[in-house]
Write a protein that binds this DNA or RNA. Structure first.
Lengths: 316, 316
DNA sequence: GAGATAATATAACTTGGGGTTATGAAGATA
DNA sequence: TATCTTCATAACCCCAAGTTATATTATCTC
């Protein structure tokens, strides 16, 4: 004897609200509807559910027992509804975000921390890759958002990109470096120092090469390579090495006094840091919320950077 | 966002059985049916429930969460189904049984004990009354079965009656009574002894009167009245009083050696002990089972009585 | 990579449960 | 007894969900 779960809900509603009319109202249905449903159920199980001809409707023992189960169904249903509601509101779910290592570690991870404080039920699955891989993963649907430097002209047709910051890179060194703090520098002055090289797949690597080509150095000394941002900072602060990093990364770390940027303008291709996504993939509410959050965070970051640069200009 | 409980069941079935086809089979539905139901659900909530284009169907996080609720619904449903099954099998429910006090206490209560050992989930609501009241209560639906002495000719039209034993009464006394054990007695011999009178509404009271009228006693000494069987037995065993009881009651108490029956045949109207019920009332499975059980018990009792009487005859 | 295989999705159709409103019937109450 | 409230019935409609048949497609295998 299979019982329809909805019938259990109806029974529970009637019993708990003390009447057919009230139960129907609680369920958002009309009174005749639940009346007939009860009648059909009684016919099917071949047993009364409510005492006959009693006007404050009086549930049978069997009915009481079924109402207990009906309450469980109602409860499960309510939590399910809440789950769905939170999901479509973008307050739960998963976001798979990938990005270039230094940028993720230096800038985005902090924003993710803020995001998760606001939306603790959204799980973030982070991964590292460079632009080409990120594009592929977006195409295949393995990733929801990529955050990386990108030349808008080189953007794959299938993807969309929204710029967040200009992709300016700087030469970074320890705050205690002999060159740090000098108001201006010639490129030739940096020649003696060893370099920490970014991974060869990184666009930073190309930037490093072009810088050194600009001062006539085709052969340069690499003292360390292959580390993540945390390693590089440790190496930098304990040596006179130099490296190339996105300006935003150096900016975010200014509070820790861990890095300094040399006042040398580096040429770099037309490139912006931004987020990239696949418009063909259904964007889940959680992903949409994440993207908007990142937009907002970068909007704040841009104004912070602007104010900071005005201050440093005034101080000069 | 209200979710249909059946949809939760379907989700749980698919997730737990590792596929749409298997899930459909487990639910006893066709594969296309649940396929489309899932599609409609996905459209309604605006979210994937299963990863797209993956062939071992892979549930989304949201789907997993909903499946948890779905399992609760399925569980509630199963217990509800079991409840109904037990009910229609007559293995749970209520039986409201009424009867004349001495007969209920002396005979029926033991059978009820047996019944409840066999069907512990059936609740028995017992009450005491005499034939007229019992009939009324059966008519009004306040009672499922009545067990009492009844002249089939006097049966109300609306009720049915099935005889279980003949309604023979006997004069009962203590086993230590001066008259006990005598092979034969004259009515006049019982004249000196005091009487324990049954309630005036009881048919036994009329029987007592007719007995005493038969020996010319219109005025008789009543030493005790108004007690239940337990009281009467206590009084009888501690005195030389006599009383009138159904033979079956005395018979059932033979093991305890609490009562003896005097070998005097009492005239009584055409009357049988039996059960009475209202055929217009829907007979619940539990009631049906109870009636059949009582029938069977009395069938056994009749043969036991028969054998017993043969033995006592032989011993004479 | 082409074909085989198995699972899922779609199509087309039917049905019945359950939604509605209007109204009747019956306890409860005064 | 009259009235009120509540439940039951009637008549209608519609769509979710059932069915079978068939197309698609992901994965496996060679």
């Amino acid at each position: 004897m299979k019982i329809d779960s909805r019938h259990l809900e109806i029974i529970a509603a009637i019993v708990d609200h003390g009447g057919l009319t009230e139960g129907a109202e609680a369920l958002g249905k009309s009174q005749p509807s639940v009346s007939r449903t009860v009648a059909m159920l009684e016919a099917r199980v071949g047993a009364r559910l409510f005492e006959k001809n009693r006007r404050p409707l009086q549930p049978t023992d069997l009915c009481q027992a079924l109402a207990v189960e009906g309450r469980k169904v109602l409860a499960a249903n309510q939590t399910a509804s809440a789950l769905v509601r939170r999901y479509v509101d973008g307050k739960s779910g998963v976001v798979r975000v990938g990005g270039t290592p230094f940028f993720m570690d230096g800038v985005i991870s902090g924003m993710i921390a803020e995001f998760q404080r606001a939306y603790p039920e959204i799980r973030i699955e982070q991964s590292y890759a460079y632009a080409a891989d990120l594009s592929r993963q977006l195409d295949s649907g393995a990733l929801d958002v990529a955050i990386c430097p990108m030349d808008p002209a080189a953007l794959p047709e299938t993807l969309e990109f929204s710029a967040l910051l200009d992709g300016r890179n700087v030469i970074a060194c320890s705050p205690t470096h002999p060159l740090a703090g000098k108001p201006s520098l010639r490129l030739s002055e940096i020649a003696p120092y060893p370099w920490i090289a970014p991974p060869v797949e990184s666009p930073l690597y190309q930037d490093l090469r072009s810088i050194l080509a600009g001062i006539g150095m085709t052969d340069f000394k690499v003292s360390f390579s292959g580390g993540t941002l945390a390693s590089i900072i440790n190496i930098l602060t304990r040596s006179d090495a130099l490296t190339v990093l996105p300006y935003s990364v150096v900016f975010m770390l200014r509070r820790q006094q861990a890095l300094a940027a040399l006042p040398i303008r580096i040429n770099h291709p037309e490139r912006s840091l931004g987020q990239m996504w696949n418009p063909l993939q259904s964007d889940r509410p959680s992903v949409r919320r994440f993207r908007r959050f990142i937009d907002a965070e970068f909007s704040n970051l841009r104004t912070t950077i602007m104010k900071h640069e005005q201050n440093t200009l005034w101080r000069r």
